[in-house]
């Protein structure tokens, strides 16, 4: 097991470097530069070069990249061009908000998605099934920002049950978590339903019933664990999805998380900040995948025993 984890971590490094390089090249290929966008309307012609030189933007790309990588390996991710702060510190500050949101959203997704999927499968082709499935289809197909504004309008603004924006207590996270979790809930519900229906066709379900087990025990005890295996894999993919969705959700609900940092950094060509946050997000996704694989191995004895 430990060897496996070490191997995965070693493989992650080239991935991170490649992501970094691609981002570096992309940012140098697309038009726009951090100095002019930093000065915006109050551009001072005589200062542009001064700043370019100071920020090292006049060096060849590979030199810039090499310098960045060397510093990064030492744990120094540089200073944000625009906000002039230590990138690591900014990420450290922003990440808890995002992870909190993502965890709440995942909770919502699992608490709603799994039972909804089970009920839909058990009550296949009934009204309950159709209601759940259209609800989850809404979740999957509604853009996060739209669903976000909608819920904000209804629950926070119209009904006044919850705050419009903020992040000061779990109450503030209810709406954003539902908005962000809804999408995953939809995916999980649909996947749980279809997997469960598939698993229910298996011979061992017949065996379980023939043993005299009740239907609930058959579904929850025998079918669910098998049906959840692919859902667990999907969870890893959802880490990326949740972080992506968090960008919009954070903007709408005024949560100072990683998503907002990343979007702002893109808009201002803030290379160090963007690099830092993208690398961080990539690392999270890699870890997410690894955790999902380990979890899968833990759940599925066919993989566990090598």
């Amino acid at each position: 097991m430990a060897r496996y984890i070490i191997k995965r971590i070693l493989v992650a490094f080239p991935v991170l470097i490649a992501v970094s390089l691609i981002l570096f090249v992309l940012l140098n290929v697309v038009p726009g530069d951090p100095v002019t966008v930093m000065m915006r309307e109050h551009i001072k012609p005589e200062l542009i070069e001064v700043f370019r030189e100071r920020m090292g933007l006049n060096d060849p790309i590979l030199v810039q990249f090499g310098r960045y990588m060397v510093n990064a390996l030492r744990g120094d991710f540089g200073m944000s061009y625009k906000l002039q702060r230590d990138v690591s510190a900014m990420i450290r500050e922003a990440f808890p908000h995002t992870i909190k949101l993502a965890i709440y959203a995942a909770l919502v997704a699992w608490i709603i998605g799994i039972p909804a999927g089970i009920l839909s499968a058990v009550k296949q082709n009934t009204l309950v099934d159709r209601a759940f499935m259209s609800f989850s289809l809404m979740g999957v197909s509604l853009p996060v920002f739209w669903a976000g504004l909608l819920m904000q309008y209804l629950f926070a603004f119209k009904l006044g049950w919850l705050p419009v924006t903020g992040y000061y207590s779990p109450r503030y996270y209810i709406l954003p978590a539902i908005v962000l979790g809804w999408q995953s809930a939809g995916t999980i519900a649909r996947l749980t339903r279809s997997n469960l229906l598939e698993v229910m066709k298996n011979d061992y379900i017949r065996t379980a019933r023939a043993k005299g087990l009740g239907e609930t025990v058959v579904v929850v005890g025998h079918a669910l664990k098998n049906a959840m295996l692919p859902v667990v894999t999907m969870m890893a993919m959802q880490v990326a999805g949740l972080l992506g969705g968090a960008v919009m959700t954070e903007s709408i609900f005024g949560i100072p998380g990683l998503g907002r940092i990343t979007v702002d950094a893109m808009g201002t060509r803030d290379m160090p900040l963007l690099q830092g946050s993208v690398l961080f997000i990539t690392a999270i996704i890699i870890i997410g995948n690894m955790v999902a694989d380990l979890l899968y191995a833990f759940l599925d004895p066919r993989i566990r025993v090598e």
Partner: peptide, 21 residues
């Protein structure tokens, strides 16, 4: 009755047992 007074053995021993238990 099932499994108690009447029990069954199926054709495919591979698929008739739950792989995760």
């Amino acid at each position: 009755i099932r499994g108690n007074k009447v029990s069954v053995i199926f054709q495919e021993p591979m698929t008739s047992l739950n792989p995760v238990y």
